[in-house]
Design a protein around this nucleic acid. Structure first.
Length: 644
RNA sequence: GCCAGCGUAGCUCAAUCGGCAGAGCAACUGAUUUGUAAUCAGUAGGUUGCCAGUUCGAUUCUGGCCGCUGGCUCCA
């Protein structure tokens, strides 16, 4: 007999070799029916697995996150089975459950097309209806190899060769056999035939390796119920409706041009207005926060990039040089060497430090064509870059400051949920990194203290640091709960050395300053795309490119309407006049579609009483208000940078 | 960069087994003078992404290029 500890603290005695399903049955028949998988000493297991020693066990029932993962994993097997039925020569790759769904990779003779998805789905429904029992077979490696070889599953054989265990696990359902660790559902019929959907088809390198063949990947999603599936599809529709690529076009903010080249954004007047507002706010906060703002060239001689090491390590990310007067000049992919030039323009004393220099620096990087994506991934962009040069004694205080500064700036735009990732070096390969051990240790301590002092949740990422220093990245959550990495704060132990930067210390000797790179919004383009999606184009009044539109109900009131427009404009409000000959209803609709916060309707009543009727884009009707009151209301929201 | 799909009027989308390319919205003109999400009528708008090839004839078929989309990958 062995002893099983349960989460409520109780224990069960059960025969050695009993399956987890037996354990569940011993606890109660209802659990046995509802259980999908179990956590055994910290590992997620299949209910068919047998226990041969004492263990602590937690069962997960339908509805739990873990059960959903199992459901998705089984659904992807059903998909693979369907694919094998329809395309018998398809070779299985891997097929895991992922967030909100699953995928499976196949090597196929013919590429799959989107039209194949519906026939695969149909076959999947058949397999679900056939309700095959799913068997788990722990099999000796050699036998497994024979089984897979007989089915010509060469990719699975490759996985098998890399297996470290002594036995392999095969799962079967009907004619389908797969090498898989599990866990899985007990029958294909447990999948709801109307609660899954295949979504897309894409190429994916075998084992994520570009030098290996490209497989066909099918993505799908699966849920406990049709209602959950519909909810998820609704969510996807939401994301699509907020897609900045659609909104920047509809709202006339930014465009891209085939003639101008991929990944290069054109800011229209309305996008430009918003950008100026964002950047002015950024500048104001930087001056208040003890930064100085600098400007540096867009191109620099090869010498500079040789000194920085960019030409050695980052050349493929840079645009090709242009030759001027026999000298090679490169468009800058980063601002740092230029700021270092300013630093080196004179002798620096410890009394000068810390120096905090910020620049909205436009850089160009050659991103691979396939990675470009609207404003989120471009080839030309403006970083809200800054470099902090300080003494070792100042570093902790500086990190602390920059963290507060970042959180403050981001919350100004309406982002208040943060999480932090701390990337440190891999202790096993210290030789890969620039800088001395004590520097890394001090840097890490100052980063950790700064994070912990603010009670921010953080993840420590071992070995994720870049070679020149540790860093922290701040992620924010948007209105749809998606995480975006914006801020990055990075130590640099490399460049001060490469450029032989020094300052004169109290002791009259030369010392090496510490250098910290930081970008808070990241790239303005990317941040802007995020703002568009976060607000679904309905920007807070202080950011809205057009804050108010004046709508006369007929052109008999044009004169009064023009007076209203003049007053608003004089007060500094971004106002548009819709004086076209159309009906008021159409103008309201236009303004609504443009998501303009205030619609000011003027007709006879308003003219007589020196008022405007205020309609909000939320469809709320505030009725007629004195013009002065409306101006004050809009200005108040603007100045307070109110988020609605 | 790689795999797949796509590219038709400013926008959203039709159409052609290879035979004169079409609608709605927007634009323009005229009429209408309107009270909180689309007034009516008319006009104009296209080398069907670009360049080759096949063909009597290519928007349609083939190849190359450019761009976009979904992924993979990269993010010194």
């Amino acid at each position: 007999m062995i002893h099983i500890s349960l989460p409520d603290g109780s224990k069960k005695e059960i025969a050695r070799g009993a399956s987890l399903l037996d354990v569940a049955a011993a606890i109660g028949p209802r659990l046995a029916r509802a259980a999908v998988c179990a956590l055994v000493d910290g590992e997620l297991r299949d209910l068919r697995e047998r226990l041969d020693k004492d263990a602590s066990v937690t069962f997960y029932t339908r509805g739990s996150l873990q059960a959903l993962e199992v459901l998705r994993h089984t659904t992807t097997h059903v998909m693979a089975q369907a694919v094998k039925r329809l395309f018998p020569t398809a070779i299985l790759g891997i097929g895991p459950a992922i967030e909100n769904g699953f995928y499976y990779d196949f090597a196929t003779e013919q590429p799959l097309t989107p039209e194949d998805l519906s026939s695969i789905e149909k076959e999947m429904r058949r397999i679900v209806t056939e309700d095959h029992p799913i068997e788990r077979l722990d099999t000796a490696l050699e036998e497994t190899r024979e089984i897979l070889a007989a089915k010509d599953e060469r990719l699975k054989l490759e996985l098998l060769d890399d297996l470290e265990e002594e036995t392999a696990v095969l799962y079967t359902q009907g004619e389908f056999v797969d090498l898989c660790r599990g866990p899985h559902l007990k029958r294909t019929g447990e999948i709801k035939e109307n609660a899954f959907k295949l979504l897309s088809i894409a190429g994916a390198y075998w084992r994520g390796d570009e030098s290996r063949p490209m497989l066909q990947r099918i993505y799908g999603t699966a849920w406990e119920s049709k209602k959950d599936l519909d909810g998820h599809l609704e969510n996807l529709a939401q994301i699509e409706a907020r897609d900045h690529r659609k909104l920047i076009k509809e709202l006339d903010l930014v465009s891209f041009h085939e003639e101008g080249g991929a990944g290069l954004a054109y800011w229209h007047p309305k996008g430009g207005r918003m950008r100026v507002i964002i950047e002015d706010y950024w500048r104001k906060l930087h001056y208040e926060g003890g930064y100085e703002i600098v400007f540096t060239p867009h191109i620099g001689r090869a010498l500079l990039w040789e000194a920085s090491g960019h030409l050695d390590f980052y050349r493929e990310g840079m645009y090709a040089p242009m030759n001027v007067d026999g000298q090679d000049y490169y468009i800058k992919p980063m601002n740092c060497p230029f700021h270092i030039m300013i630093y080196k323009s004179r002798t620096r004393s410890y009394r000068d430090l810390p120096l905090r220099w910020a620049e909205l620096g436009t850089v160009y990087r050659y991103e691979r064509s396939g990675t470009l994506h609207g404003l989120l991934r471009v080839r030309g962009f403006t970083q809200d870059d800054a470099h902090i040069f300080c003494t070792p004694e100042q570093i902790e205080d500086e990190i602390s400051r920059v963290l507060d500064f970042s959180l403050n700036l981001l919350s100004g735009f309406g982002f208040t949920e943060f999480s932090v990732e701390l990337s440190v070096r891999d202790p096993k390969t210290p030789e890969k990194y620039a800088g001395e051990d004590p520097m890394w240790e001090q840097a890490e301590v100052s980063l950790v203290r700064a994070i912990e002092a603010r009670g921010l949740p953080y993840k420590r990422m071992e070995g994720e640091a870049v070679f020149y220093g540790p860093k922290i990245d701040i992620k924010i959550k948007d209105a749809l709960g998606r995480a975006w990495q914006l801020t990055t704060i990075q130590f640099d132990f490399n460049l001060p050395q490469r450029f032989d930067m020094t300052y004169i210390g109290e002791d009259g000797k030369e010392h090496r300053p510490y250098m910290v790179h930081r970008a808070l919004l990241g790239a303005i383009e990317r941040f802007y795309a995020l703002l568009v999606e976060h607000y679904a184009g309905a920007f807070p009044v202080w950011l809205a490119p057009v804050q108010a539109v004046v709508i006369p109900i007929s052109d008999r009131f044009l004169e009064y309407a023009q007076g209203v427009v003049d007053e608003l404009r004089k007060a500094g409000i971004r106002v548009e006049a819709n004086f076209s000959t159309g009906r008021m209803n159409a103008k309201i609709r236009d303004a609504q579609l443009q998501k303009i916060p205030y619609m000011l309707v003027v007709g006879g009543r308003e003219q007589e009483t020196e008022t405007v009727s205020v309609r909000l884009r939320t469809e709320e009707d505030l009725g007629a208000r004195p013009l002065a009151e409306v101006i004050a209301m809009i200005l108040e929201k603007t100045e307070a940078r109110s988020l609605i």
